[in-house]
Design a protein around this nucleic acid. Structure first.
Lengths: 187, 187
DNA sequence: ATTTATATTTACCGATCGGTACACTATATA
DNA sequence: TATATAGTGTACCGATCGGTAAATATAAAT
């Protein structure tokens, strides 16, 4: 299957939602920015919500692929890879147009935990957690679940702090904290 | 000056914005939920944005007052107080209707860093930072600025994680990490 | 008693919201 | 060549968006 207009729509909608927010981005704005007619959009997605869910699916795929690969490029051993996550994050924060985490944003606009958009955002975080728990196990750290959760707290904190922009280099702060935490459960 | 309708409006608007989000809460909904006429609202605030800024000012005052006081109630020494922050956070997360941090939400919906709402949200975080830096200095920790920033990363991470709801007890995870980090810069 | 500030109700504005109806066109495959 | 698939433009729907006009009521302060 070659790239369809549908894929193009989802990709461009991702940009628009990421830069402007979900409620603030209307379907008419999407028509303007994508050049795709509203009729076509509604042939592919029954509602705006369905489109957002597809956007989040794409974002999840792209982000996790990027992060997992980048970490492997930056470090060899599992223990070093957990630290390298924060170098990868710093690269992301430094990108033009960085506007925080799409899933945190989504859960900020669709707050009810029973809302499909909220649920799907939580799923994304869960997948990150299990991935880093696995790495922590490879690294033979004591209490791999706990250290993975702690590092991910630092990650989420760095993401929102980088977006708020009130400290200089949250990725490096998080990295130093991560090193201390990993040290503390290494034997 | 006694409590005016204006104060009542700001307080009820805070609830509505916190529970439903900023874009998702229209001025007409505010009329319904507060019983205050739209004309009165626009006598007090020129625009919705002005109202939001007033709401954020109130929220900043309430939240900081609550957190600072609660921490002092929970612990005596500066070092213990820094850890106690996470017990205070856990109480907050367990409240009915907990929906994350109002300022993270605000910056998620008004993403441009030059936007007044975004700026004011960053100011809130800055004030927290200087407060906890001062406590870290009192505690005679080496590198008090760094440890304060690290603990606040854990705090922000716990806040969004508690809202996403994908882990069991992020406040306790953050607390354990905080203890390790504080230990590491105590001599 | 009169002013002033604060509040009210009702109705309205143009713009935009998410979503649809309808008629039409290009393309690829069977 | 027939037929489905994917796409188009335009016009429209009722509802809601943020915000305003005008006329009026209330009550405390001068």
């Amino acid at each position: 299957m070659r790239p369809t207009k549908r894929d193009e729509l989802v990709q461009k909608a991702l940009q628009a939602f990421y830069q402007n927010g979900f409620h603030a981005t209307g379907m008419d704005m999407l028509v303007k920015e994508t050049g795709i007619s509203k009729t076509s959009m509604y042939k592919h997605f029954r509602t705006k919500e369905d489109l957002i869910l597809a956007v989040l699916r794409l974002r999840d795929e792209h982000f996790r692929n990027w992060l997992y690969r980048r970490i492997e490029e930056l470090a060899d051993t599992p223990k070093e890879q957990m630290v390298a996550m924060f170098d990868a994050l710093e690269e992301w924060f430094d990108e033009d147009g960085y506007k925080g985490c799409m899933f945190i944003k989504a859960s900020s606009e669709y707050q009810d935990s029973s809302h499909p958009i909220h649920k799907q955002s939580a799923d994304h975080k869960r997948m990150l957690e299990s991935h880093f728990t696995a790495i922590a196990k490879e690294a033979k750290l004591s209490n791999p679940d706990a250290i993975a959760r702690q590092l991910l707290l630092l990650k989420e904190g760095a993401i929102v702090t980088a977006h708020l922009g009130h400290t200089e280099n949250p990725a490096q702060d998080a990295k130093r904290a991560a090193i201390t935490l990993i040290e503390a459960c290494s034997n």
